[in-house]
Design a protein around this nucleic acid. Sequence first.
DNA 1: TAGCAAATTTACCGTCAGTAAGTAAACTGT
DNA 2: ACAGTTTACTTACTGACGGTAAATTTGCTA
Lengths: 228, 228
Amino acid sequence: MILRDEHKDVCRQRRDREKAQRMASIVEAAKKVFGTKGYLKATMDEIALAAEVTKPTIYLYFKAKDDLFFSLMLPLIDDIRAELQKVESHLRAGKIRDGAGLITAIFNAFYAAYEHWPETFRIIQLFQQQGLMGELRPEVRSALNDRGRANFHLCRQLLATGMELGLIRKVNVYEMADVVWGVLVGIIQLEDAKFYDRKDKRTTENTLRLAEKLIAEAMTIKTRGKRK
Amino acid sequence: MILRDEHKDVCRQRRDREKAQRMASIVEAAKKVFGTKGYLKATMDEIALAAEVTKPTIYLYFKAKDDLFFSLMLPLIDDIRAELQKVESHLRAGKIRDGAGLITAIFNAFYAAYEHWPETFRIIQLFQQQGLMGELRPEVRSALNDRGRANFHLCRQLLATGMELGLIRKVNVYEMADVVWGVLVGIIQLEDAKFYDRKDKRTTENTLRLAEKLIAEAMTIKTRGKRK
DNA sequence: TAGCAAATTTACCGTCAGTAAGTAAACTGT
DNA sequence: ACAGTTTACTTACTGACGGTAAATTTGCTA
């Protein structure tokens, strides 16, 4: 007896669901193991064990260790973009009154992502190394670059708009976007390294807030100050 | 015939020289290989080949891969300290007139080290990862921390003195020192990652200078401005 | 020259990323 | 119901690399 098309479809949908489920469990396991052990000490066997499958099964879903690692970064990058887009709509709606507000909002967009998934954030830092960037296969690398670039583009747009609106002073937007991202990554990374045994979230936040305050003050256009 | 003590000494001195020479050649090879391939892709065999010895020979001079890696960082850390000490003596001698000058001097102290040994600087960044920090044996890690801490201490002292002298505004020195170091490392690392194929030194420097300018301006005490 | 000490190498081990080959289940058309 | 196929997964392996033990060469001493 021939199965009705609908029946086929239903079965296929279930299998697709199961496959997605398996993939998700691998990703979850990877997040846990990479997050606690770091890239080097994490083994594929351990991740497989945590995901309740065997190692080769992982290789059905991910081409390589770095591929799996990379897949953890995408949601974070996309989350940052979502946050930046929120800032953009606020800016367009005129809800951001001064330069300090804009800088703080941009900082918060990145910081929120870090607070959400600190371990994934750390993963990005690892990839910002020539060593690991070179390791990536070209497709993977370009995918990563594209997404990252999109975020930087959005960030630069925010800064440019802020300059046009007269909220912040005019500087090179490319450099400025890099300063923001560099400050965030650099400080988070430094604090992580300093307190790698007793993770002290508050110190990290305080330091970040100081950096944010300084940059915000320097970027804010003083209504009656000198231009130099 | 018994050799005179002087003869023995001369021979021993030569052998010591040769040993030091061998060690230096291993270090040089390691610098080259780690610098181009990164920590992960660099193999001990490749370093040994570049140093024109075999792998076990390296292990006569360095306990482990991370030990060798670590040894590359020490000169850099010490160099930064030397630069910071120069700044300190300038500051004490009253050669630094304003806050911007002090911030610039501190930035330059770190930046000079980067310009001197960019590949070694990248190595430090690699170690500022939880993953690699955890990899280090405790002795190595604590030695690294001690040296690093000394630099931070010096940097904080500079900032504190600058505050006492009324050159820069009063903020938390611990946080401020972290901001300086974080900004430098974060930006250098970001630019390295962005232009990992076509290393563009100038872009990196421009971005760093912008960050420096912003921080310097925000930290400088305005003689006739509002405090807010 | 024999004997000793240091320096270096050859040959090996354990671990881990990645793969080839096999298996068991579910699906397919007759 | 049943043979053939596809899908999902596993067992068992390979190769590369960090690190080491044992053998070997080199050079000094008497």
